[in-house]
Design a protein around this nucleic acid. Structure first.
Lengths: 209, 209, 209, 209
DNA sequence: ACGTGCGGGACATCCCGTTCGT
DNA sequence: ACGAACGGGATGTCCCGCACGT
């Protein structure tokens, strides 16, 4: 009440700067907490719950994200971004075939990990097509990019002769992509069984490609 | 209400067999309505909503199913049963390869149809591993049976020489299964695009098998 | 359906007789179960719950008691009757003082036992004055009879010289009665502590009377 | 609504101290209303009902008390506190005997008043031992404190010679306490009859002590 | 005498989002 | 930037009682 008039202009600026920075930090801590809770309780986790983890209240969430919907969207984008980064990094070197194999093994590692984050990713993919129409545009872009990237890798491999060229690149890419995501659906199995299946899938591909 | 022509037999029974038969009829009408609503609004559709469709009240739902959880379980079982029936029927004749192809094309037809029921099926599969632990035992049994059936078909094909035998039958079965379910995840695409992808998948398999 | 026409008139009569007898048996089993459940879950125990214990359904309860309210009334009367029988039996012999002491010790045994049945008795007494007005007439009669009986005992004792006669018999009776019931209110204590208190009360009375 | 003149201080605070103070005021108004309703409809009075009296919605109740259980606990504590304050004030001056008589007459006035608040108090005492286990710890503490206070008064009286010392102080205290509460159980009688009984009890004590 | 189907209604819980204050 | 108060509304659960059949 009375104490902010005892500050100089500089101090005010500094205080504001700090305020802004701390705001950004809070925002990302909230996002992190949301990913965690969404991964466990599902995207229906309450605002209050998430806020509790971070040590703030709903007010902060609303300040930073505006609505539940926006938070879910941001979480979706963030989770996708992280997965994409891993996958791209794992498929950046070597022949087309090697790059494809890198992608497959990295994806399989993630999908087969049964980690909450990947479960969340799958669930958001699924719900984007049903009960959360507002995620549809994002999902569409994501899926498209994923397919294109796969097809690109296959095509590269077919050009450098490391992948058989008697099948359509697009189809091959899309199928591999589908198979990878399909593993996630069977996540009721214990993680190691998941992992073995994903590895076997990789070897099988080695024969078929 | 709208589908009561398919219930004529039941309703006749109701007229004759009195109370208990009419109860059974109501029960199955509720189950039907639940499948419908769950497919559209998700498994969180309210009791009241479902009851409204059938023309009864929540009391009736509670009388027949005891709890939300039990209803979801019964819906899950029923949906699985229907899909299984279709798939088994489509893979009953011919060589191992033909039977496998029959299964794949029938599954692809279903999964690729983007029909609400199949979306529901996928969603229940997914949630069985995350937010609905009470579905886990059912899911586990279902997935196991599905894998075994696939592997059996592959093995049959390998024995009668219609499928290449330089790959492991279990792995092959599991992979095909995963790929099929994976298509469902990408359901944000328009149905016909889905269908084309599934068909292309079938052809690709023809080459790879 | 078809088998009751093969019976003779006598058999019918016999069957009816059996039916009636079995009905009475069911009725008292229900009453017993109701006392038990009411004692534990409170008088709000559901019909279905009580019926379940006996192995029948709500229908039977409604047939025999008509409504929740009537069942509660019957339970109230029955519980009171049982307590009264014990107390009267314990205060039937000896001088006025001895009879009074018998009553006190028997009451204290019951009230101090912390047994569910006595808790129920107290609770019904209490609720008769508040949330269950339909029990009021019963409660009034019960309390009146209790007071009169106490006063009678005191008076008898004063006449035969075994009880000091410088106090009003009615007041004395009523006070003793109140004190006994008061013990029940403090039932949060462990039973043996209850019992000790009740015994001490008896001794104290010995001095004061 | 009707008793807001007793809240004028609070409401002034609310106008000045802004949000949080107004919250506190609301909280205590809710508590007040809960006591009132609980006293009449029993501790099962609905949230909505209580909220309606105060002029807020269920949300506010939930905000301030978290759950029904917590509200009941707070009500219990508050009602006990008020009775204790009255009784202690009435037994603060004079010889041990006078203090004890003060306590008895004040208690008798309350218990004998048949006032809804006292009926509530009794009912909570009783239910603490049966259907509301979460009240047990509170009840235990309350009863203990009550007994100790009584015994202390008796002891004081015995020391200053105003109370006969041929009986055990603890027993005497406990018995008086029980008798007082016992009157409440007989609350089906019209209030004035109650009151007479309580007064008679006081006189009787005068002779016996 | 008893079971079953079902209506009708109450209620605690939970959650989203807005507003106000600091 | 964030906390606290609160409204509004949805939903699962539970239970009473009636009607019907046997």
């Amino acid at each position: 009440l009375a104490n902010h008039e005892s500050k100089s202009a500089d101090e005010l600026m500094a205080a504001v700067g700090t305020r802004v920075a701390s705001g950004r930090a809070t925002r990302s801590r909230i996002l992190e907490a949301a990913i965690e809770r969404f991964a466990q309780t599902g995207p229906d986790a309450s605002f209050e719950e998430i806020a509790g983890v971070v040590g703030v209240t709903k007010g902060a969430l609303y300040h930073h994200f505006g609505s539940k919907q926006h938070l879910v969207e941001d979480v979706y984008r963030e989770v996708v971004r992280r997965h994409a980064a891993r996958v791209v990094a794992a498929s950046s070197k070597g022949s087309g075939r090697e790059r494809l194999e890198g992608l497959i093994s990295e994806s399989a590692k993630g999908y087969g990990s049964g980690s909450p984050v990947y479960r969340l990713l799958l669930r958001l993919h699924v719900e984007a097509g049903t009960v959360r129409p507002y995620l549809t545009p994002i999902a569409r872009r994501v899926q498209a990019r994923q397919r294109e990237y796969m097809a690109m890798l296959v095509k590269t491999g077919q050009e450098d002769g490391s992948i058989r060229d008697d099948v359509d690149a697009d189809t091959m890419g899309q199928t591999i992509n589908a198979a990878l995501q399909g593993f996630l659906v069977q996540q009721v199995e214990p993680p190691d069984s998941q992992r073995r299946a994903a590895e076997a899938f990789g070897e099988l591909l080695g024969v078929l490609i």
